[in-house]
Nucleic acid binder design. Sequence first.
DNA 1: AATGTCATTATGTGCATACATAATAACATG
DNA 2: CATGTTATTATGTATGCACATAATGACATT
Lengths: 233, 233
Amino acid sequence: MNTPTFRNWQSVQTEVLRRIHAREWKPGDLIPNEADLALEFGCARSTVNRALRALADNGLLDRRRKAGTRVASQPVAKATLDIAVIRTEIEERGQKYGYQLILRNQAIPPVAICASMQTGTTEQLLHIRALHIADDKPYALEDRWINTTVVPKALNEPFQEISANEWLLKNTPYTNGEIAFHAAVSTPDESSILNCPEHSALLVIDRLTWDNSLSVTKVRLVFGPGHQLRTIL
Amino acid sequence: MNTPTFRNWQSVQTEVLRRIHAREWKPGDLIPNEADLALEFGCARSTVNRALRALADNGLLDRRRKAGTRVASQPVAKATLDIAVIRTEIEERGQKYGYQLILRNQAIPPVAICASMQTGTTEQLLHIRALHIADDKPYALEDRWINTTVVPKALNEPFQEISANEWLLKNTPYTNGEIAFHAAVSTPDESSILNCPEHSALLVIDRLTWDNSLSVTKVRLVFGPGHQLRTIL
DNA sequence: AATGTCATTATGTGCATACATAATAACATG
DNA sequence: CATGTTATTATGTATGCACATAATGACATT
């Protein structure tokens, strides 16, 4: 059997994928080493390396020095959700974006917020509540605390036209963050703002971002009923 | 000022990240080309390329041939959720895993399922309902349809001990899939199985996987109240 | 048997070079 | 002036080579 030669790393990747899908290499199996594959595919080892590294990044292969490369036995599917600016998200779906500021003041947040943001319990933060609107219908309720020690410039922003969501993403650097998704029953308050029946099930996203060891902002986004987050595997 | 030399692609990446965070390079800015950066950093162009490519993969940079590399103006945060086998998920949190099969039969699915799986409306599929249990408490309800034309071997599986979730991930190849998250109010049925109050807000994951153009399985996972999906940014 | 040493091995990475490819700008031509 | 051609430029990638590094196993030593 004469194997065709694979000229680029994508085609090598495709062929390796094919073998995994066709179960020629089963989960847990050790696959040939880079040098051998390079020989077989008629390309350089670095080309094979590139292909296998990409697959390992996607969780399909486990690689360890000396131990070799094996097909992941628990093929962990990685769902990558793109968290964009809400305005962009809405506009990309061809809907009209609207925005309405509900509240903007400085206050001492509840202790739970203080604790997670690691700010003092006597420290005032900037509190913003706002509604994002798609095609004149409520889309998501944003409830945010901003650490003004870290982002003093936020104090000069009215957030009347531009949402804190958008302003912060454009103007504030951050190094890392956490994000969590869960479902919650709507409070009377949320129901009236989002114009939905009480006790609706709402998708909630909590996000907390840090600049090095200082908390920048903590935000809760409550989406209207039926909202879906989707992505491909 | 004498610039230190950067010996590896990670340190180049770190330095580029620093400049972005420090706003030396702002969103939308064009950054120097690879050759210049290589010169500045005292390394090879391929090293710079590796670093910038990695950052572009993470959505922090936009790169286009000839046009050059610029800092992403809409820094789209990418939240990567690892979707593992539920048993593993539970065990990794140090909890005891339990499993209970509720239903296993062959039936013609509702039209909505047929439509999304692109199977005929007269075609019988394998229907599985099962409960995943963490520390003796209901964790998630799995409701699944399996295309037995594609996975005939599933017909020989009792799914009494091993969940369909786990069996399929280990035994069935797939090429692509879709996944969606949303919140739903519990039905009476779900409430009793998950042992939660009626009208609880539950996190629901719908997943549909394909092997090339044939649907493999469609599954709905309904998690108990309070369940969170978390990841880091 | 337990422990330590060392050679071996497979992946990880850096570098110089070459060429491919996409996008753009400059230019020429009708 | 519009349009097509060409040169230029920055990224994309393949290759061969070298060396780094982690993990392993074989072997020796206690």
